[in-house]
């Protein structure tokens, strides 16, 4: 094991300092979400105080807090967010898997151009194309609908999904399909029953990434979802009322928002690292 004889001191210091930087604001997010109005603005800022749940009550629109003008009442937005990001993730992963397989196994003309094109869709600044999505959506009757946002979320993740999945398929030896074909199975059978089960980890990793981006998508949604289809991040950004910004509520919403992503990430943590390596190794091999 190559790293055994190195002193542990320096890595420990590096990780320690970094964890303070990473965790400090996270701690502050959780603390602030539990503070009442007085504690929020106290000087010096307090570490110990009696927790107050009104931020969370405002987020979910429970009890008296729901009557406040600036209370978000995020239930509708929560449903929107779940429906849009789950459907968008499923579609992006499904289509990305199919395209990734085709790009990995078949040398069709224009394949490399397609791969660059797929990657370049991630580079487009949302504001640059938003005006035209706006026009296009109103013509197609998709303005302010979940369907429209599902389309957008699928689109922003599709390139990434194709790339990561191609990398995983590159890691599966082509002999597997060849043997299956020789033995009289169809390619579709080999794809579905032999190759797909081998890249389950890759599918999980891809879904993880797509879900993070879908769940937090703000730039497109804030313009395209005006009332009906508002997602959580869009709702949160509007938590700036006449009385100023509702800090506790924003922080509470942040905590609520990050929980599903963090659980998901923890479950697929092994595959995430694999996904990134495979993606690049696959690329340099072509």
């Amino acid at each position: 094991m190559p790293f055994h004889r190195q002193p542990i001191l320096i890595p420990a210091i590096v990780i320690g300092i970094y964890m303070i930087y990473a965790c400090g604001p996270l701690l502050w997010l959780v603390l602030s979400s539990l503070k009442d109005r007085q504690e929020l603005f106290s000087w010096p800022p307090s570490l110990f105080f009696t927790p107050d749940l009104s931020g969370y009550r405002m987020v979910f629109g429970i009890g008296e807090a729901a009557e406040t003008a600036t209370a978000l009442g995020l239930t509708d937005a929560l449903i929107n967010s779940v429906v849009i990001s789950v459907s968008g993730t499923v579609l992006a992963v499904a289509f990305g898997t199919l395209a990734g397989y085709a790009c990995s196994r078949f040398a069709f003309p224009g394949r490399d151009d397609f791969m660059f094109f797929a990657l370049s869709t991630r580079m487009i600044p949302p504001v640059a194309v938003l005006v035209f999505y706006h026009v296009m959506f109103s013509r197609l009757g998709l303005s302010d609908t979940r369907t429209g946002l599902i389309l957008v979320v699928t689109f922003i993740n599709l390139g990434l999904a194709t790339w990561i999945m191609k990398g995983f398929f590159d890691g599966v030896p082509e002999e597997i399909e060849n043997i299956a074909l020789v033995n009289g199975y169809t390619r579709l059978y080999a794809f579905w029953n032999l190759v797909l089960p081998m890249v389950r980890g890759g599918i999980a990793a891809t879904a993880g990434f797509c879900f993070i981006f879908a769940w937090n998508e703000f730039a497109f949604s804030t313009i395209l979802a005006t009332t009906q289809a508002k997602t959580l991040p869009v709702k949160i950004s509007s938590a700036t009322g006449a009385t100023g910004i509702e800090w506790a509520q924003i922080c509470a919403a942040g905590v609520v928002l990050v929980i599903p992503v963090a659980i998901f990430f923890w479950l697929i943590r092994k595959y995430l690292l694999m996904g990134m390596t495979f993606g690049v190794l696959g690329r340099s091999r072509t």
Partner: peptide
């Protein structure tokens, strides 16, 4: 250590 990346950018900004 990965958590900050998973937060919503708008929340990070306000925080």
């Amino acid at each position: 250590a990965m958590l900050p990346m998973m937060l919503c950018p708008i929340v990070v900004g306000f925080l």
